[in-house]
Design a protein around this nucleic acid. Structure first.
Length: 614
DNA sequence: AATGTGCGCGCG
DNA sequence: AAAGCGCGCGCACATT
């Protein structure tokens, strides 16, 4: 229960207790909890055993059974932690969820680089906060170490002590105070931190995974599971067909170099073994070869070995890395969470009595661009309809396919081929949107930085890039030097052009997630449910299980499916208002409840590559 | 035997 | 069809 009649803290900082001089043991696992008032002044402090932390947090959250349902009139604090994966798994395992957090590591990464922050010197010098996330504590199987921008090669953790946390938090608050447009940065820090919570929660809950269905798919596409070291029967058959068609009984299909030699010996004139180049040939070896390659990919990426390693108790538990991509998108570490092939989506299977709800935003990036640039014409083209079809309706391009090429080309900086022909039409129809991306590209070509809608700033080009540019400016620069510099400048310009769009879209998605997790937590819990593999916090209520840039999947009790679907829609509308209040841009969802929820057909709108069927 | 690199391909 | 952006992973192959 809330303690005494102390003033309600605005922030509560968690940190490992600093060992006092008279501490009986050096490594006593104790935690210090410091309450801060609205101006950052300390208004309370207590130290307790690590094991007692969950109960304290549960009390402060004011909810029963970790439900997160508030009981008292005062709101729970925003918990300030060094690094969410360091602290939150323990709480979740104890049945405690929290509403709001401020993740010092994630916030530091944003603030130390944001061009909105006027004075970054204090944050720049506290570089012990420039580190990657801790690896998941129970990760017996996680062998992949990851590097985040700046931490290349060495795995370093941020400090977890209370003194370090308080000092860094004070630096961060001061930095936000000096920012131009502090509101946006505060919003970004809150959203980024909420993303940290969601990532930990989804890892704890896991994706409900039907192993039998996965095995059925493997059996269907590859044949029965082979013995150790063996290849599946259907792969062997395809390989023999290829060798026969090439008239090369020794041909190796697994080594690109040797395969290329075999292909050329058979008169197939290709410069690589990539599938798009192979597909242009009509040689009879090509069809079985492409079939073989699809099977080889499925086997190595998501075959029986993947199932053994990554799925246990009917749950796939990927490790998400919020902020792991420079643009602010999430990365994933281990198990290929962001690359689960559409082919396998039927293996996502709700528990008995539960259902899956999947929702994705149609054309998120162009909509983010329309909103941030205030381009009314572009907003109108996407209003209440498929944005690409909107371009056709408005007579800007002839077909939906052309619209897609033009829009993607505008955001990625395409200059050749069909995109080169179509993008200029957008420049005419959507001048504000095009000016925004063109300006971002120009800034990048000059070696400058660009910033997303909420304040995430692109990295500066590296030393090598600067050397190349400097070389081309020398009086004795060769045409080769100049070409190289022009190409590098163009590359960086396309990066910064895309950064503002991809990064702002990622901010919208974070706001969506952040709002959604709170709405789901406020749905009622179901009664009398058996314990599930989702853990103590999520066994009785709707929860997020999957997130992929512009798509979420929620696992919900059947009785709450409609309420959860509403929460997803309302959260999307709320995210749009929060980021772009007043802009006439909507973010329509494709939402599916039930059996087919996880198995959306290969992309009408996805990156453009419609995956082949086997 | 470990480590690094390029290729190819899955996802948005 | 890929192109133009951002990723992670497994494999073959080269290097240490």
């Amino acid at each position: 229960m809330p303690s005494e009649s102390a003033p309600t803290p605005a922030w509560t900082v968690l940190g490992r207790a600093e060992s006092a001089a008279d501490a009986p043991v050096v490594r006593d696992h104790r935690v210090t909890v410091v309450d801060l008032g609205p101006d950052g002044e300390e208004i309370g402090r207590t130290t307790l055993a690590e094991a007692a932390l969950p109960d304290l947090v549960r009390d402060r959250e004011g909810g029963a059974e970790g439900s997160g349902v508030r009981q008292g009139p005062s709101s729970p604090p925003r918990w300030v932690v060094s690094d969410t994966p360091k602290w939150y798994p323990l709480l979740l395992a104890s049945g405690v969820r929290i509403d709001r957090a401020h993740d010092l590591r994630l916030a530091h990464a944003i603030l130390a680089r944001s061009s909105l922050v006027t004075d970054r010197s204090a944050l720049a010098s506290s570089d012990e906060w420039d580190a990657g996330p801790v690896t998941a504590p129970e990760a017996g199987q996680a062998e992949t170490l990851f590097d985040v921008a700046g931490g290349r090669g060495h795995v370093k953790e941020v400090p977890h002590g209370i003194d370090a946390a308080l000092a860094e938090f004070a630096r961060q608050q001061a930095a936000v105070g000096t920012a131009t447009g502090p509101g946006r940065l505060r919003l970004l820090l809150a959203a980024e931190s909420a993303g940290g919570l969601v990532a930990a929660e989804m890892h704890a809950a896991g994706v409900p995974w039907d192993v039998a269905e996965h095995e059925r798919i493997l059996d269907d596409l590859l044949g029965p599971k082979p013995g150790a070291g063996g290849k599946p029967a259907k792969m062997l058959v395809a390989a023999e067909e290829v060798r026969a068609a090439l008239d090369d009984p020794q041909a190796s299909l697994d080594s690109p170099t040797r395969l290329l030699t075999s292909l050329r010996n058979a008169g197939i004139n290709v410069s690589s073994t990539s599938k798009w180049e192979l597909a242009e040939s009509t040689h009879p070896a090509i069809e079985p070869l492409l079939r073989y390659k699809r099977m080889a990919r499925l086997l190595s990426a998501n075959g029986w070995a993947w199932l053994d390693e990554w799925v246990a108790e009917g749950r796939y538990r990927p490790v998400y890395v919020p902020g792991g991509v420079v643009t602010g998108r999430w990365a994933a570490s281990g198990g290929g969470a962001l690359q689960i092939p559409r082919q396998l989506r039927p293996a996502l299977r709700a528990d008995d009595g539960w259902t899956l709800i999947s929702a994705d935003v149609a054309q998120l990036e162009p909509r983010a661009l329309a909103a941030m640039s205030g381009d009314r014409a572009m907003a109108e083209a996407g209003s209440g309809r498929d944005l690409y079809s909107g371009l056709v309706d408005e007579g800007i391009v002839a077909t939906r396919q052309e619209a897609k090429i033009a829009v993607l080309g505008a955001m990625y900086g395409s200059t050749t081929g069909e995109a080169g022909r179509l993008v200029p039409r957008l420049r005419q129809s959507f001048p504000a949107a095009m000016r925004l991306v063109d300006t971002a590209a120009e800034e990048g070509r000059r070696g400058g930085v660009v910033t997303t809608w909420l304040g995430r700033t692109s990295p500066e080009p590296g030393e090598g890039w600067r050397r190349v540019q400097a070389r081309a400016d020398q009086i004795d620069a060769t045409p080769h030097d100049e070409n190289r510099a022009r190409r590098a400048a163009g590359d960086w310009g396309r990066f910064t052009r895309n950064f503002v769009v991809q990064g702002t879209a990622a901010e919208w998605a974070l706001a969506w997630l952040a709002d959604l997790r709170l709405r789901l937590a406020r749905l009622p819990a179901i009664e009398d449910s058996p314990a599930t593999a989702s853990g103590p916090v999520f066994s009785r209520r709707a929860h997020l299980v999957f997130f992929l840039h512009d798509e979420v999947i929620v696992h919900a009790p059947e009785a709450h499916a409609d309420a959860a679907a509403d929460a997803i829609r309302e959260a999307a509308a709320s995210a749009g208002r929060l980021l772009f209040s007043g802009a006439p841009v909507d973010f329509p969802l494709d939402l599916t409840i039930g059996e087919r929820a996880a198995a959306k057909q290969p992309g009408l709108d996805a990156g453009g590559h419609v995956s082949g069927r086997m």
